[in-house]
Every structure is written in structure tokens, then in C-alpha cells.
């Protein structure tokens, strides 16, 4: 007997309220499914496109140690993309479609990866600030209601803390180095601070649907709350290495004990999201080319696999 939608929705909500995870074959509202596909695929795309700004410096890392670390970090990001694509696929969308959406520009990815990495210090700033901000967001998402997403997030969080530390370590060496190195670190902080603040998403009065998404535990915390925590944790880290946050209005709010930041340039944020950031076109082109250039490899591997099945279907 088919239960009606209202009963199913109540059961669904009560599971979530009890902290029971929703699994792929469970009933879920279409809106929940679609919202998750959107979030998870955006997240997956961000991990994949996120390899590009850092990949830019792998061949020019200043030492073998730094190169090995950066390679491992970028490889982790590829892994994160894979966990998330596979988690998104549990909701009934296939990999081909997900990638088509990225390549056609229909799907979005994090605005932050559309900024260029001009100096080695940017690699430090990315690990410290971008991974740092991502961790704030991901720790919250790990408590979300959709099983496969939350499990992927737990895994990702475990791997992220090395990303954050290696970035801060780079900033430390530069900040405590020569005057030029310190200047380079400060310049990277100046360029990455605001994009990192913005990557946590529009302010709460500008993000619709939040109430329902919170009730369904798709979103766990408001963007502004996560942003506040990120700033609270990061400012003392900047102080420690003697760098200054490029926000003249930044100060501790005596009443709450939290930092209050100056006005955010949301126009820039929405403009980058729309595709007009400094690197949007080259990022997308790199992905599209990689996919196109890899097509013959995928076909060859499939042909090889098919041939082996014909030759001996017991030995795979």
C-alpha cells in the first residue's frame, strides 16, 4: 500500500529529528534530493577545480619537501572530489551528467578557485585560509542528515587538517624570514583574505531557503555563524606571525566577544560566481580539455576490459 506524501514526510522529519541518517533508498522529498545533488556536486566540482590553483605551483615548489607535501595535498583534493561524486551518485544522478554540468558551466563551484596563485606565498595562504574556511564548513556538514554525504565529510575532515597546517607552516617560514619574504606573505594574505571570507557564502539575510534546509539538516549552521567562527580562530594565527588582516574595521565586539568584520564586497562575490572572476574561463577550459583529452583513454580501457571478458570470462 502506498503511503501518502504527508505521512512519509512526517516519518522523514522524525528520523532526522532523532538523528537517524537518511540513506539512498529511503523515501525523501524531491526538494531534499535535488538540493543535496546541487550541494554535493558543487562541493565535488570545487574539490576538483580546487586542484588547479595549487597545481600551478607543484613544479616550482621551493624544496623537495614542499613539493612532496603539495603533491600529497592536491592528490587528497582529487580524492575528496571522488568521494563526493560517488556520494552524489547515490541520489540517482550519474557521473557523466555531473561532469557535463561542470563542463557546460551549468554547475557552480566555489568562487575562491577563480583567483590566481601569483606567488609561492599564495600556496601558504590557500592552505591556511581556504582550507581553513572549508574545514569550518565541512565539520558542520559532517553532522548532516544524508548518510553518504556525512560519511564522505567525516573522511574529508580527517584529511583536511594537514592541508591547513602545511599552509600555515609556509606562512610561518615566510613571515619569520627575510623582509621580502614577509612582504610576500602579507601580500598573499591581502589578496586571499576577502575571497576566503566570501567563500563561506552570502550573508544570512541574503540566503533564501535556509530555514527548511536547517530543519532537514542539509545545512547545519548559517553562513554568518560559520564565518564568525573562522574569523575568530584565524585572526590570532595572523597575529602570531605578525601579519595584519586587511580589514581596517576588524575589531572584537565587547558585547559578544567575537570579531566583527568590515563590509564585504558582495558585488565582487556574485560577479565571480557569475563567471567574471579573474580565472573562471581558464579554470573551466582546463577541465574541459582534460576531459576531452582523456576520452580516448577511457575508451581504450573499456575496449581492453571488454576484450578480456570475451577472452576469458572467469579471469578478471
Amino acid at each position: 500500500m502506498q503511503k501518502d506524501e504527508k505521512v512519509l514526510l512526517e516519518e522523514f522529519q522524525s528520523k532526522i529529528d532523532k538523528g537517524v541518517k537518511i540513506e539512498p533508498k529511503d523515501w525523501m522529498p524531491l526538494k531534499y534530493r535535488n538540493q543535496l545533488i546541487r550541494m554535493m556536486s558543487q562541493h565535488a566540482h570545487s574539490e576538483i577545480v580546487g586542484m588547479l590553483p595549487e597545481g600551478n605551483w607543484i613544479t616550482r615548489a621551493p624544496s623537495l619537501r614542499r613539493k612532496a607535501i603539495l603533491l600529497a595535498k592536491v592528490q587528497d583534493e582529487a580524492g575528496h572530489g571522488m568521494y563526493l561524486y560517488s556520494a552524489a551518485e547515490t541520489l540517482g544522478i550519474d557521473r557523466t551528467t555531473l561532469l557535463e554540468q561542470l563542463h557546460s558551466g551549468k554547475a557552480k563551484y566555489s568562487s575562491i578557485f577563480n583567483y590566481p596563485t601569483l606567488t609561492w606565498a599564495d600556496i601558504g595562504a590557500i592552505g591556511w585560509l581556504v582550507d581553513g574556511a572549508a574545514i569550518m564548513n565541512q565539520t558542520a556538514l559532517a553532522k548532516g542528515s544524508y548518510g553518504p554525504y556525512s560519511r564522505a565529510m567525516v573522511r574529508i575532515c580527517k584529511e583536511e587538517s594537514f592541508h591547513n597546517r602545511q599552509g600555515y607552516e609556509i606562512m610561518c617560514s615566510l613571515a619569520f624570514g627575510s623582509q621580502e619574504q614577509k612582504q610576500m606573505a602579507q601580500d598573499a594574505l591581502n589578496r586571499w583574505w576577502w575571497p576566503a571570507i566570501m567563500m563561506l557564502g552570502p550573508s544570512d539575510d541574503n540566503s533564501p531557503n535556509t530555514e527548511e534546509l536547517m530543519r532537514w539538516r542539509v545545512k547545519m549552521e548559517s553562513n554568518d555563524a560559520i564565518r564568525e567562527r573562522f574569523i575568530d580562530r584565524t585572526v590570532p594565527q595572523a597575529d602570531y606571525i605578525g601579519l595584519s588582516i586587511p580589514d581596517p574595521e576588524l575589531k572584537i565586539d565587547e558585547a559578544t566577544g567575537h570579531y566583527k568584520h568590515g563590509p564585504i564586497n558582495w558585488e565582487e562575490f556574485f560577479n565571480v560566481i557569475k563567471g567574471n572572476g579573474p580565472c573562471n574561463k581558464s579554470r573551466l577550459k582546463t577541465r574541459v580539455d582534460a576531459d576531452r583529452n582523456g576520452k580516448w583513454v577511457r575508451e581504450a580501457a573499456e575496449a581492453y576490459a571488454a576484450k578480456r571478458v570475451i577472452r576469458d570470462d572467469t579471469d578478471f
Binding site: P24, K25, T90, R95, T96, K295, R298, E302
Partner: peptide, 19 residues
């Protein structure tokens, strides 16, 4: 786990299946 939705599963060389 994907258990019910298995599009892209049949190895059709025309379409890029991503394996």
C-alpha cells in the same frame, strides 16, 4: 551505495560512460 539507479552501466561506446 548505488543500488537502484544504474544509468551509464551498459558499456555503450557511443556515450562516454565514465566507466
Amino acid at each position: 551505495m548505488i543500488l537502484i539507479f544504474n544509468k551509464g552501466m551498459n558499456t555503450n561506446m557511443e556515450k562516454d560512460t565514465q566507466w
